[in-house]
Design a protein around this nucleic acid. Structure first.
Length: 465
RNA sequence: GCGCCCUUCGUCUAUCGGUUAGGACGCUAGGUUUUCAUCCUGGAAAGAGGGGUUCGACUCCCCUAGGGCGUACCA
């Protein structure tokens, strides 16, 4: 087969939601795995709902997630003439017909069918009518779907799925105002864009059967389908804003690493043996449609957080700093100074293993981002008693002419504690509070080395005053 | 109503007829440790129910139950 082409076709609703992001990711992973192309198409045919800002929000989400696309995004709306052209061609071939039934007539038909417990699929009287009897009235163009036989989709995820012809309706291709419906537009665009693999949510599975009729009518090759299960909320119900159905920018704001997001989303419904933690490169290398599961998965924030923490720890300090700065920019924080940047690099090892998301990195970085004096917060205050102040005073004097490295500092503090007949913790905790104003921080010795002698001693003097 | 899909620990999953049903998150008991975290060791925890097929079913088939999606001049 020729080169693989996949696409992601979101409708611009204002943001890229998490389910869409996963669909995009699967398309992207598959294309990259196959050395193929990954296109973007904005389904903007519903002009009442469309705004350029909404489309931009989707692209921003894609960029943040690191899912790069090939060529320019295609606007579906810009192709309406082509869609109509295909509808007319189908009309000419006899694969479609003009239907003059009014909305009222259709509603009546459906109500009656429902009352009689018959399928509510509309059966247009114009399907086999003599064209000569056609009124001079608005019409829609309907597909002439086969009433017998079967339609089978060989789906890469769902397997072989078959429908009876009579369960497929004569769907509308062109509305009475001449605009194309989604069903038509998708097929025409996918065909024209050379899409070889349609990977999308399994809410489209039935649509695949209906859409295949258009391909057949036009004599076009069917793409390979892969309908992936949707994501549910933690309670098993449909994903809503209450759970995780937020836009991806919400996850950016919460400070998850894009790398962790890709990892988590890929693992939701797809597996590679027992591998849970992996890089994007590995995911690309390993990805295959045959390892996508058929059952829906629930969104689990705990696991996401765990993976995010693992990725933070695994990220090189320089790269992590870049992510931190990107995050800061996205949150409109004031940019880091050169000094702060240097402090981040020297202190990164101490803070990265204590954080699961970027805001926690900033939180832990408090002791080197801020300026003296560091007054203890409410939780730390009780460590600085008169007694411990005095003790710190004694320690400080021993520190003044110490050579400033990890081993030496540790030795001094330990010896001091022994001499005072104190457990190390009794010395280290007040020391930590003096240095940071807080109860929790990286190792006191590492912090002292990082801060330097002058700064460390100044903070100790602040505390013992 | 009709059509289609789904169902392994609480959650994500492995297993592609033969396993003490494995891993991960979470939970839990310990250990390491100056705090927190990291890290290490251990534990509890699963095949929806019922029929078949088979020497042997989580795995194949059927039924039931539960859940989801679709059934628009929305996408």
């Amino acid at each position: 087969m020729s080169q693989v082409v996949t696409r992601f076709a979101p409708s611009p609703t204002g943001y890229l939601h998490i389910g869409g992001a996963r669909t995009a990711l699967f398309n992207w992973l598959f294309a990259r795995n196959q050395g193929g192309k990954f296109f973007l198409r904005i389904e903007d045919t519903d002009r009442k709902r469309y705004t350029p800002e909404a489309a931009d929000a989707i692209l921003d989400g894609m960029r943040w997630l690191g899912l790069d696309w090939d060529d320019e995004p295609v606007s579906q709306f810009s192709r309406v003439d082509r869609h109509a052209e295909v509808a007319l061609e189908m009309l000419a071939k006899g694969a479609a017909y003009k239907c003059y039934s009014t909305k009222e007539e259709i509603d009546a038909f459906r109500n009656e069918a429902r009352a009689a417990k018959r399928p509510p699929l509309f059966r247009s009287p114009w399907r086999d009518a003599d064209p000569a009897t056609a009124p001079d009235a608005p019409f829609v163009v309907r597909l002439k779907a086969p009433r017998q036989g079967k339609v089978t989709i060989e789906d890469q995820v769902q397997g072989s799925v078959t429908w009876k012809g009579e369960t497929l309706d004569d769907m509308i291709l062109l509305r009475s105002d001449g605009t194309p419906t989604y069903m038509l537009a998708v097929v025409v665009d996918d065909h024209d864009m050379g899409v070889t693999h349609v990977i999308r949510g399994d809410d489209h599975l039935t649509n695949a059967a209906r859409q295949s009729l258009i391909y057949t009518a036009m004599g076009w090759d069917l793409p390979i389908y892969a309908h992936i299960p949707l994501i549910y909320g933690p309670d098993g119900a449909k994903l809503s804003k209450r759970h995780g159905a937020l836009g991806v920018e919400a996850y950016r704001d919460m400070g998850y690493l894009p790398e962790a997001m890709r990892n988590y989303l890929a693992r939701l419904g797809w597996s590679h043996g027992d591998d849970d933690f992996f890089t994007t490169e590995q995911a690309i290398d390993w990805f295959s449609l045959s390892n996508v599961g058929k059952s829906p998965a629930r969104f689990d924030f705990k696991k996401l957080a765990n993976l995010s923490g693992q990725h933070i720890r695994a990220t090189e300090n320089e790269n992590l700093l870049r992510e931190i700065e990107k995050y800061g920019a996205s949150q409109h924080m004031t940019p880091l100074t050169d000094k702060q940047r240097a402090m981040f690099i020297s202190g990164m090892d101490g803070i990265k293993e204590r954080a699961k998301v970027i805001p926690e990195l900033f939180e832990m970085a408090y002791y080197f981002l801020g300026e003296r004096p560091f007054f203890p917060d409410e939780k730390a205050g009780h460590f600085l008693t008169t007694v411990s102040r005095g003790m710190l005073n004694g320690l400080t004097s021993r520190l003044r002419d110490a050579s400033w490295n990890l081993e030496k500092l540790e030795e001094i503090v330990r010896t001091f504690a022994e001499a005072e007949d104190l457990k190390l913790g009794k010395v280290a905790q007040p020391l930590r509070v003096a240095l940071t104003g807080r109860k929790i921080s990286p190792s006191v010795f590492e912090m002292m080395v990082q801060l330097g002698k002058e700064e460390s001693i100044a903070r100790l003097e602040d505390a013992s005053r």
